[in-house]
Design a binder for these strands. Structure first.
Length: 266
DNA sequence: AAGATCAGCAACCGCCTGACC
DNA sequence: TGGTCAGGCGGTTGCTGATCT
């Protein structure tokens, strides 16, 4: 394969580069009304001069209502390390276990911060020297997620953007014709009909975390489907605490099920 | 104060895979 | 059964802006 996608290779004008607020609004509005039916048809229907892949990327990494933005917490960081150890560079699988984070975000975070941190850790352990503070904390006043990117300027389904607050769970955007395997809906009326049939709009699991790891897997490996055994992942988390100092898996003193347990080890 | 440096991030690119015809 | 198409993923690039010199 490797050929260019038809939607991207056609002569018709396809915008590239950063998305404008107007484009965000168009895309978000379109998906709010019609859902994600067929990415390749969305640009035309929504009046965007983008290719479908670009729309999908923008939605998945930026406009999705269930995305939380802001810096990664120490707990998230630890879990990324553990999951990376277990899953390798399967960013989408890692992202599936970190609700509210996109694979791109995690990948960037890893490349920018954690890889460096791990290297430092290794270097310091081999040299037996003292740990140096992570150099990257030096910049970006306050160490926030940067805040340099424009906020998700428009999302009809969300309250005013608040980058540090987790967004509500993915509810509210429709998935007209988005049942698995559904074919493209190439005209907006069909999508609209699907979206509005019955008067209410059904929200599907389009932004739902991936299916839980297979409980039937053996104790020491990830399944081909991407699910990892709980014991295996726990071992990985333990390993991360070895690397980065102890952290409580549950994060709860009272022993109740934590956010992380319920998501990562569900 | 201005240029250099660098971290952070959005988005593109190329490839793979599965569905459909 | 092979070709085409679309979705998805990981790697990489380039821009922006904060910080340093």
């Amino acid at each position: 394969m490797g050929r260019a996608h038809p939607c991207c290779s056609e002569e018709k004008k396809v915008r590239k580069g950063l998305w404008s607020p107007e484009e965000d609004e168009r895309l978000a509005t379109h998906i709010a009304r019609f859902g994600v039916s067929c990415w390749s048809s969305i640009p035309e229907i929504a009046g965007l001069q983008r290719c479908g892949k670009s729309c999908r990327l923008r939605w998945m990494n930026y406009l999705r209502p269930d995305l939380k933005r802001g810096r990664f917490s120490q707990q998230e960081e630890d879990h990324i390390i553990a999951l990376h150890k277990a899953l390798g560079n399967s960013w989408s699988q890692i992202a599936a276990r970190l609700p509210g984070r996109s694979d791109n975000e995690i990948k960037n975070f890893w490349n920018a911060r954690l890889r460096k941190k791990l290297r430092q850790k290794e270097a310091s352990s081999t040299a037996g020297g003292k740990l140096e503070p992570a150099a990257s904390h030096r910049r970006r006043g306050g160490g926030e997620d940067g805040g340099t990117h424009p906020a998700a300027i428009f999302n009809p389904l969300l309250p005013a953007p608040d980058q540090d607050r987790p967004r509500p769970a993915a509810a509210g955007y429709v998935a007209a014709g988005a049942a698995a395997g559904s074919s493209c809906v190439n005209d907006s009326s069909a999508a609209a009909a699907a979206a509005t049939s019955g008067g209410s709009v059904l929200v599907t699991a389009a932004a739902e975390p991936v299916a839980a790891p297979s409980p039937a897997s053996t104790a020491s490996a990830c399944t081909e489907a991407g699910g990892c055994d709980d014991g295996f992942l726990r071992a990985m988390v333990d390993d991360a605490s070895f690397l980065f100092g102890d952290f409580d898996l549950d994060g709860n003193q009272d022993g109740s099920t934590s956010f992380w347990e319920s998501h990562v080890f569900s």
